[in-house]
Amino acid sequence: MRFGSDSDQDPWQQPMDGSHASGSKAVADGPGTQRTQYPYVTGSSIIALKYKDGVIMASDTGASYGSTLRYKSVERIKAVGKHSLIGASGEFSDFQEILRYLDELTLSDHMWDDGNSLGPKEVHSYLTRVMYNRRNKFDPLWNSLVIGGVKKGPKGEEKYLGMVNMIGTHFEENHIATGFGNHMAIPILRTEWREDMTFEEAVKLVEKCLLVLLYRDRSSINKFQIAKITTEGATIYPPYSLKTYWGFAAFENPAQGAVGSW
């Protein structure tokens, strides 16, 4: 960022190749660098929770360009290393860049060839630092990331579920939902979640959340993916649709019973 005198008149100043015109999408910061000012293609909520054998994660497969549904079949949940899953809402290209970072990280970890491998805790910690450092450069990765996994620790098999957002706020929880899910799905998860849920029960609960989001989040679509991570490793299931029912009275006539002056 530059303060004070007009940079065009500084004879030692390299010419900038970006535009400073108001309304431009990114701010130029000298030759060759641009900083994201707002997201373009965005994914909506991620739902994730711990269950008996590990962590389950779910999302739809949509990605929107503003209010246009631009991509209908993208994976927003991926496996990282041997013990972790990552789910992302927010800017899709930033997520793909994060996946490249994680590929590099897991590869260099693998090349030590020492029998050790990064667990979900380490991946979460790494991403926490990446997100926070990018916000410190005013060049954020525009995502909310959810990291789930299972790995052997000093106390046996340890389940892990954590989140980090675009400015580096991070925490661990038993159930997490990003974006709209934080408003619509968390209340459901708080009342119905149990530590010892079976996978079948967890799928049912997650589907209930996804269905509520499908009804109420305009950017969500009826094509979902569920993924799980257990000691056996990661499984990302193929996409499928949920059965919907649009005949609810409130859907038929939403204005009924609403008191208005007109």
Partner: peptide
């Protein structure tokens, strides 16, 4: 349009 905010208050 969403603008980048470097801070939030987590209370």
């Amino acid at each position: 349009m969403a603008r980048f905010e470097a801070y939030e208050n987590n209370g």
